[in-house]
Write a protein that binds this DNA or RNA. Sequence first.
DNA 1: GTCTATATGTTGATAGAC
DNA 2: GTCTATCAACATATAGAC
Lengths: 201, 201
Amino acid sequence: MSRNQESKMKILSTASTLFQKQGYHATGLNQIIKESGCPKGSLYYYFPEGKEQLATEAINRTKDFAAQELRNLFSQHDDVIKALECFFGQCLSFNPKIAHDGIPLALISLETWHMSEQLRLACKNAYEELIMILREKFIQSNWPPEEATEMAYLVFSMIEGGSIFVLTYKSNESLKRICKSIIELIKLKQKEIRRKLRNEL
Amino acid sequence: MSRNQESKMKILSTASTLFQKQGYHATGLNQIIKESGCPKGSLYYYFPEGKEQLATEAINRTKDFAAQELRNLFSQHDDVIKALECFFGQCLSFNPKIAHDGIPLALISLETWHMSEQLRLACKNAYEELIMILREKFIQSNWPPEEATEMAYLVFSMIEGGSIFVLTYKSNESLKRICKSIIELIKLKQKEIRRKLRNEL
DNA sequence: GTCTATATGTTGATAGAC
DNA sequence: GTCTATCAACATATAGAC
């Protein structure tokens, strides 16, 4: 790989981190190039459409990274409940002071949905992919497609909402409670589903 | 009420709306005074500490407004499930294009938690008050305090997360699904709680 | 491809006349 | 209390030498 592509990757990874933590508007291009150590000229060379293009590619990068991690994590457990417990453990192991990987997209999505169709669609696309991964896991555990879809959306909305509390409270406590409740509720729901399945047989 | 206080209120209400929709960094003081119709001199007369003070008071205003509405809504139903169904109906009746009252705080909280302790605490305080209102409603419906706390956090995190989807997707569909699932899960949990209570008697 | 210098606009904030 | 003029600092973006 040429030296140029290395510069592009450096800019992109720095931008991803900063956009996730500080948001779109609070992150200046000057800060990005300064922290990446790359020359400013390179930024507009690799991202000629400027900030919006850079943010779009940063979102896609974040999505790819998260999707890969999620798939990898889920491949280690057959049962969806075990997989989610593992996933939640991962979420909770992050220190709120340094990591905010729980909400890689919430902030930039809330900031930009009304002003940039390009960024909104990038976020939407990212959410859809991540949710589908979880949905597939429910289906693998014999959940009916309809219930799998519903629960996947539910779990993701709780993670997003719970992550907001983590940062606002600067504490993991509420997310811990939330994850515990989710697992409990999923188990309740799974019992109901299996009972229904037995009755249908 | 003097004319001055009227100017202050006008600035504050305009600021609240803009901060909620566009966020903290995307909303300039110039835009606020322009849309409020008030003179710029008034802004620094009433909010001498500038943007941060204005945002803090805007958050508190939003919190008071939301808390009052929630209390009013909940007072109309004795049962917490009926109350929540009514609340969700209210949430879903908002058009995503014009209203974003579902997430009055998520955006500004995610934007500012790491850079302003004053704003973070204002958001935290707001969340706590709203969650306690819901918790009280669960307790009124004979939920044990521990379970009431857990479920209140859970419901709010789902609403926050679900609202992110509403805006990102520009559609109510996912929030509808989420609300439906929440109600269903609460009913399941309530059955379990009542069974436990009967066993203890 | 890299880097500097700069153009152009907007931000939050202030000073001072009225 | 109101309003104007203005500040310095920041933003995104560009032009052109090397």
